[in-house]
Design a protein around this nucleic acid. Structure first.
Lengths: 240, 240
DNA sequence: AAGTGGTCTAGACCACGGA
DNA sequence: CCGTGGTCTAGACCACTTT
């Protein structure tokens, strides 16, 4: 844990417990830096995290203030992470998987393009239903290059592909590009997510890549429209 | 324009024009700092922007690399902004509005809570269809406290509420919290967005707040499922 | 040991807003 | 004018990876 993260957590806790009055600026950066015995740059960085979370905002020449809208939120995430894909969020829940399809074949033009591979490089074609506490949570359609993610089998699919990639293959996931849209539910969604024919789904299209820069997953996740939503915070640049 | 933004743009341009080979690290931070005549901190900050955009990623002990998946993207946004709400993105397009409903009344419990106001404080209740180049683009249901955003009338609603808030009221928007989900289209959606009864919509629930910390807008935006998607980049923390 | 990125410092100057 | 946050610097030390 770095110094700025520790300080950030302390300030987050203070906001959550109303240690600072919500209608006044919190102490200025120099005072806080003195209190926490750090440089002003480090203090600023700690506050930056909270600004990015939407808990604080700054007014040049005035001070740093608490976002009132954020106080209504349940409890303010103790560790304050909004965007931590699936498994992380589910850390202490019972996550299981059901395999709907598991094939290997040559990729379509589209899949090859998104994975930056040649059409002659085979890909896994996987459809899994993931359940949280026995409840259907998300239906995932996944393409992964066989050359990159070697040795996928049913046993791996019943657990977490991400655990396999990091713990067994010792590869590291660097990030992902996502597109989020609404879609009509298809026959598979209705069958496995248990949704009605008239129910839509929230579709997340994702290209994930390793810390080698190589894309290793192109996937479409379908979530029940009544059980999943995506949260984000938008910050207006101070200069505008 | 700050130094780190200028440097960031230059590097973004270089990536877009394949100035750097994509299978090798870009020059290290000290070399780049020397080339751009800045400190290493400033150089790092310039690169941070590109990492946040998903164009670059870093490997401690190795170097900074180009994300191959990002190169496929059309042209790499010249100024690289993903999350700039409506009006900004539409800068050079013809945006018009059609007023579906315009009322003032007392807020429901839910609306009052999201706007952090008392149930006795009246709110505008607005439904607008927004069109881009004459095409229906989004149907917005908006609640705003009358005490905060004074003087809204039909003329304002036909243009941009945001312009009115900044240019006439001289208030500043600091940010917004958003939730994105899929929903069934209702009768209004079908009528105004021209979607079929079976078509879903992408719903964005938003609480926007001023640089006074005061929430001023609680809204639900419905987008046609086939014409709108939300893009985002997820970065895995290097420590994990 | 050498080279990379990650953090942190102490201090400087600038931009903005209010007294 | 002063106090605020925003940027920038020059340098230090640490963590990680390869040689």
């Amino acid at each position: 844990m770095t110094k700025y993260e520790l300080i950030s957590e302390e300030i987050r806790k203070r906001i959550g417990t109303a240690y600072y009055p919500e209608d006044q600026p919190i102490p200025d950066e120099n005072s806080l830096a003195a209190e926490f015995q750090c440089s002003r740059m480090t203090m600023k960085r700690a506050l930056d995290l909270l600004v990015a979370e939407g808990l604080l905002f700054r007014k040049r020449g005035h001070g740093t203030f608490i976002v009132k809208a954020a106080l209504n939120k349940r409890a303010i995430n103790v560790s304050g992470h909004e965007n931590r894909g699936f498994t992380k969020v589910m850390a202490d829940k019972n996550v299981t998987s059901q395999i709907i399809r598991f094939d290997v074949h040559f990729p379509s033009e589209e899949v090859a393009a998104h994975l930056s591979i040649d059409s002659s490089a085979p890909v896994y074609d996987i459809v899994r239903l993931r359940l949280v506490e026995e409840e259907p949570y998300v239906l995932e359609k996944t393409f992964m290059p066989v050359n990159v993610i070697k040795g996928i089998d049913e046993k791996v699919l019943l657990g977490s592909i991400y655990s396999y990639i990091s713990n067994t293959l010792h590869l590291k996931v660097a990030g992902a590009h996502k597109k989020i849209r609404a879609a009509k539910s298809d026959q598979l969604d209705q069958q496995y997510l248990g949704c009605d024919q008239a129910d839509p789904v929230l579709e997340v299209e994702q290209v994930a890549y390793l810390n080698t820069g190589r894309p290793f997953e192109y996937s479409f996740s379908h979530h029940r429209y009544d059980k999943f939503e995506f949260s984000t915070v938008e910050i207006t640049k101070t200069g505008l």
